[in-house]
């Protein structure tokens, strides 16, 4: 048994310590947000925040987490209020199949928490680790721009 802090709550988890966080989130904690896309750190479908930084949860073994705080898509909404980044994705209808979207939201969240006035080039460079095959890129970018405004900033041209 290992204790894990996910979305602000401690969880007791019965899993091998080398298990990548992704499998624990999905199977042991029944959280759907982080997705298995490649398991190789190449697509970002599994992106979650660990101590505020975006990481590929498919490559973070439980043993590495210690006391660090994990946040997933499910943890963004506070007190039932929709969080700005997911709300912006919904407003922009930024999804086709949507499989990549949870990871996109988490990576965008990490950027905007740190800097809600990134330039367009910074935004694109920041999102580069995450792949979308449906070609939803333009809407995803629009959604992050919208979220930046909602969070009191705005993406600079």
């Amino acid at each position: 048994m290992i204790t894990l802090t996910v979305n602000g709550k401690p969880h007791e988890v019965d899993a091998d310590l080398d298990t990548p966080l992704l499998y624990v989130l999905r199977n042991d904690l029944a959280l759907n947000g982080a997705k298995f896309g490649c398991g190789l750190g190449q697509c970002g479908a599994c992106t979650v925040l660990v101590d505020g930084k975006p990481v590929f949860s498919c490559l973070v073994p439980l043993a590495a987490l210690g006391r660090r705080e994990v946040r997933t898509l499910e943890g963004l909404a506070a007190d039932g209020k929709p969080a700005p980044v997911p709300a912006a994705f919904e407003a922009e209808q930024a999804a086709q199949c949507g499989y990549c979207i949870a990871g996109m939201i988490m990576r965008a969240q990490a950027l905007l928490e740190r800097n809600n006035r990134p330039t367009e080039a910074e935004l694109r460079a920041h999102m580069a680790p995450n792949l979308c095959r449906c070609g939803t890129h333009m809407r995803i970018l629009a959604a992050v721009r919208r979220a930046a405004v909602a969070m009191g900033g705005g993406v600079q041209p």
């Binding site: 959280l31 759907n32 947000g33 997705k35 997933t72 898509l73 499910e74 909404a77 997911p86 994705f89 919904e90 209808q93 999804a95 949507g98 499989y99 979207i101 949870a102 939201i105």
Partner: peptide, 16 residues
């Protein structure tokens, strides 16, 4: 109309 499948996809609902 907004797509009915999107809310689950942006909130971690069971979608797939």
């Amino acid at each position: 109309l907004p797509r009915i499948d999107i809310p689950a996809k942006v909130s971690g609902g069971q979608a797939y």
